[in-house]
C-alpha cells in the first residue's frame, strides 16, 4: 500500500492475555492520554469498543478460569481502512500507527465497513460526528514515549516495541511454554499481518476475537480492479467510438444505396437490424 514502510521500522504492541489481571489500568491510561470521557463512578463497564473507549478488557470464562481479553485497533501493516478512505483522512505512519484526521473526513463510514476487525466507531449522537479508534498514542510516540496503555500496564501483559522484536518474543513464549498458550499469534498473519500482536491461553474464537479474518492484505483486492480504470477509459472510449462509426457509416451507405437504384439491393443487404 501507499504509506506502509519496511516492517523493521514499525512498532506495535504485544498483548499477552495470560499475564492480564483485568485491572483496566490500560483503559484508564488510554482515556487520560486521549481526552476521552471518564465514566461516572458505578457505571457498568463497556461491553464493546465505543467512541469513548479506544480499548476495552472483557472477561471470558475458559475451563473455569477467567481470561481477560483486550480489544483495540490492530494497526494493520496494510490497513483496509486506509485504502478505503476516499479523502485520505486515515493514514499509516512509518512508525506503525494508523491515524485519523477528523478535519479531512466527510463521514462516509466506509472505514467502518472495511475494517476486518470491526474496530472504528462513530460519534453518532453528535451533529458534527467523527470516527474514533485507537491511534497508538502517536502524539506520545512523537515525544518518544510509549502508548499510554503499555505505560500503565502493571504486569507487562501489554508491551510496546518494534514489531519484529515482539514477534520473536511471542514465538519464544509459545515455544518455551506450549502448555500455557494456544499455538496462534493473533495478528501475525491476520489481514496480512498487524502491528498489534496477541497471545492467548485458548483459541481466539472462544475469546471474542474474529478468527475468520482473512490471512491476506485486503487493499490488494480493490487495487486489482482500481488499477485497471485507465485501461477501461481508453478501451471503452475507442470501442464505443468505433462501434458508432461503423454503425453510422453502414447506415449512411444504406441510405445512399437506397437513393441510387443501381446499387440499392447490394448495400441494403449489409445494413439493417444486424448492425
Amino acid at each position: 500500500m501507499t504509506t506502509s514502510s519496511a516492517s523493521g521500522d514499525r512498532k506495535g504492541l504485544l498483548i499477552d492475555f495470560t499475564l492480564c489481571i483485568g485491572c483496566e489500568a490500560c483503559m484508564q491510561g488510554c482515556r487520560e492520554a486521549n481526552d476521552l470521557e471518564v465514566p461516572p463512578p458505578g457505571a457498568p463497564p463497556p461491553e464493546a469498543l465505543n467512541a469513548e473507549n479506544y480499548t476495552i478488557v472483557l472477561p471470558h470464562e475458559v475451563n473455569g478460569e477467567t481470561v481477560y481479553v483486550r480489544h483495540l485497533c490492530m494497526h494493520c501493516a496494510e490497513p483496509a481502512c486506509v485504502s478505503a478512505c476516499p479523502v485520505a483522512a486515515l493514514t499509516k505512519r512509518d512508525d506503525g500507527a494508523v491515524v485519523y484526521d477528523g478535519d479531512l473526513c466527510f463521514g462516509c463510514r466506509y472505514c467502518m465497513i472495511a475494517c476486518p476487525f470491526h474496530v472504528p466507531r462513530y460519534t453518532w449522537s453528535k451533529a458534527v460526528p467523527v470516527v474514533r479508534k485507537c491511534i497508538l498514542c502517536y502524539h506520545r510516540l512523537d515525544e518518544d514515549r510509549e502508548p499510554a496503555c503499555a505505560a500503565a500496564c502493571p504486569t507487562g501483559a501489554t508491551r510496546f516495541g518494534p514489531r519484529d522484536l515482539l514477534l520473536r518474543i511471542a514465538r519464544e513464549r509459545i515455544r518455551t511454554q506450549p502448555e500455557r498458550y494456544t499455538d496462534h499469534i493473533y495478528g501475525e498473519h491476520e489481514a496480512g499481518g498487524t502491528d498489534v500482536l496477541m497471545l492467548a491461553p485458548a483459541k481466539f474464537a472462544a475469546l471474542g476475537h474474529d478468527a475468520q479474518v482473512p490471512h491476506r492484505a485486503l487493499p490488494e483486492l480493490t487495487w486489482f480492479v482500481q488499477k485497471r480504470i485507465p485501461w477501461v477509459i481508453v478501451t471503452g472510449s475507442v470501442l464505443l467510438g468505433g462501434i458508432h462509426w461503423v454503425v453510422h457509416r453502414r447506415m449512411q451507405l444504406a441510405k445512399e444505396g437506397a437513393d441510387d437504384p443501381a446499387t440499392g439491393g447490394a448495400s441494403g443487404a449489409h445494413s439493417g437490424e444486424g448492425s
Partner: peptide
C-alpha cells in the same frame, strides 16, 4: 454523510486506491 460540508475535500485530498474515491 456525517459531515457533508467536507465533500469538497475530494477535489484535493486524493486516495486513488479507494473504490469510494
Amino acid at each position: 454523510l456525517g459531515k457533508p460540508w467536507n465533500m469538497p475535500h475530494i477535489f484535493y485530498s486524493w486516495n486513488h486506491h479507494s473504490a469510494m474515491f
